[in-house]
Nucleic acid binder design. Structure first.
Lengths: 252, 252
DNA sequence: ACGAACACTTGATTTGGATCATGGCGCCCA
DNA sequence: TGGGCGCCATGATCCAAATCAAGTGTTCGT
C-alpha cells in the first residue's frame, strides 16, 4: 500500500483553516508548475487574492456538471479528477484525468456553460479561480494573459494527441501511452516516474482510451508477461520504460 | 459542376490590391462570424490594423508546418484548409478542417511552435493575425480578450466532440456527424445546408474520422442506398437530414 | 487531346477488439 | 466475520472495419 504524500501534506494544511498560512500560491509546493508559473511574486499575491479555497471534495463528488453555468476554472491541489461528457445516447466519455498542478474547466468558457462534468476519483483539494476576476487580472498582467492562453493551447494539443491515439493506435499502444503520460506527469511533480498508484478504475481507463474493460485487463496482463511493468491491482511499477516507449510507438 | 461563390467574390478583391477597400474586417462578409464578432466598430478598425492580408495560397500549399515558429493565428477568408499532425511513425493524422470565418493555428501558442501543419485543400485567402499584436490589443480590449478565450475554448470542446466520436461511434455515425457538421457550418455562412461540394478527399475524411478510404466509400454508398443523401463524387446533397441525424445518433 | 497518376468504388478475406460468460478477489459494512 | 457487491481477470465467440485485391473514373500536366 503506497502512501499519498500529496494528500497527507496538503490536506493537512486544509483541515485546520481555509486561510491557513500554507494555503496560498506563494507557499504552494506546486507553484512552479501551476498558474503562478509565469508571474512575479507581487503578481502572485494579486492572483492569490482572487483564488478561493474551499474544503476538499470527497471521492465521487462532482466539482461541476455538464450544463452548469460556467463561473470558474479550477486548479487541482491534491487528488485526481476525471472530466467526462455524457453522449446523446446516455453513455459516458471520459475526456481527461487531472492531477495536482493541472487546470480544468476551460471547456466552459466557449458558451458560459460547462461542456463536461468533473468528478473526484479520490479526495481532492481544489483551488477555484473565478473566471471574471481572472479575465480582469489578465488585462492588467500580460504575463498572466499569455500564460492562460498557453494553458488553453496546451489543452488543445493534448486533445489532439488523444485524437491521434484513438484514431491510429492499437489497444497496446494506447495503454502504453497512457502509462507513459502518467509517469511523465508524476515526474513533473517530483514523484516517482516508475512506481505509482492509478487513481482511476479499469473502466475509466478503457472509457478514456476507447476500449472495453476486458481489453484493458488483457493488455495489462500481456505487458506484465512481457516484463514491461508489474501490476498489482492499482499499483503500477514500470520495469522497462524503454520497452514501453517502443510499445507506444514513440520510437527508440 | 458547382460555382464557388466564396472564391470568386473574395479572390476578386485580392487580385487588384492587397489594400483594396474591400479587404478589411469592416466590409468583410464574414465579420459576423469571425474574430470581429464581439467588437464595436471603432475596435474593429484597430483589429484591422494588425491583420495582414497576403495573396491567396494555392491548393496543397502549406500555411504553416509542424515545428515552425509560432508567430500568428489565421482566419480563413475563402477556401478550405486541413490541419494535420505527423505521428511518430510517420503517418498523418488530420485534426481538423477549416472553413471561411474559422480561426486556425491556436495550437501553436502553448510552446511557441506550431503543433500541427496546415495545408490548403483548394485556393484559399487568409487573414494573418500576428499573435503578439493580438495579445497587446487584448489587454486593451476586454471584449477581444474574452472572445479569443472563447474561440480557444470552442476548439477544445470541438476536439472533445471528435474524441467522443472516435471512441464511441461506428463508421456510419462518424460520417453522418461529419456531413451534419459541414452542413451546419455552411448554414452559418448563409450557404446551402443541404447541397455542397466536399473540399477534401475520401482519404482525408477517413484519416480525420479514423477510418480507411474503403470504409468511407462504402458508407457513402450505403447512405445513398438509404436515400439519406446523394453523392456525385465530391458533390453532396442531403436528402433526409432527419434520417441523417438519427444515423448520427443525435436523437429525433 | 492524350496518357499517366491519382481518386474512388466494390468485392473477398482477415483480424483486433467487442461482447458474452464465468469465476476470483478484496473491501466495506452490518 | 461473513455476506454481498463492485472491480478485475480470463476464456469463447462474434462482428465491424481493416486489409488485400481488382477494377473504373477523374484530373492534370504536357
Amino acid at each position: 500500500m503506497s502512501i499519498h504524500l500529496d494528500n497527507i501534506v496538503e490536506e493537512g494544511g486544509f483541515k485546520s483553516c481555509a486561510h491557513d498560512f500554507q494555503t496560498n500560491c506563494g507557499n504552494c509546493r506546486l507553484n512552479a508548475i501551476c498558474l503562478p508559473l509565469a508571474l512575479e511574486s507581487e503578481d502572485v499575491e494579486q492572483l492569490d487574492d482572487i483564488i478561493q479555497r474551499s474544503k476538499p471534495i470527497q471521492k465521487n463528488q462532482h466539482l461541476y456538471r455538464e450544463e452548469d453555468d460556467f463561473k470558474s476554472v479550477y486548479a487541482v491541489r491534491s487528488g485526481t479528477l476525471k472530466a467526462y461528457k455524457t453522449t446523446d445516447d446516455g453513455r459516458e466519455q471520459v475526456t481527461g484525468f487531472y492531477f495536482p498542478g493541472e487546470i480544468l474547466g476551460m471547456d466552459g468558457i466557449a458558451n458560459n456553460t460547462h461542456a463536461s462534468s468533473a468528478k473526484a476519483l479520490e479526495t481532492a483539494a481544489i483551488c477555484e479561480i473565478p473566471f471574471e476576476s481572472l479575465e480582469k487580472l489578465s488585462t492588467l498582467m500580460p504575463n498572466l494573459q499569455r500564460h492562460f492562453f498557453q494553458l488553453m493551447s496546451r489543452e488543445i494539443t493534448e486533445d489532439q494527441q488523444l485524437i491521434t491515439l484513438l484514431s491510429k493506435n492499437s489497444a497496446d499502444e494506447r495503454i502504453a501511452s497512457l502509462m507513459l503520460s502518467i509517469s511523465a506527469r508524476n515526474a513533473r511533480r517530483k514523484l516517482s516516474a516508475t512506481a505509482f498508484r492509478l487513481p482511476m478504475s479499469r473502466v475509466d481507463i478503457g472509457n478514456y482510451l476507447g476500449l472495453t474493460v476486458e481489453t484493458v485487463s488483457r493488455v495489462f496482463s500481456r505487458m506484465q508477461k512481457m516484463d514491461l511493468l508489474s501490476v498489482d491491482n492499482k499499483e503500477i511499477e514500470i520495469l522497462d520504460i524503454q520497452g514501453l516507449r517502443e510499445m507506444a510507438n514513440l520510437g527508440g
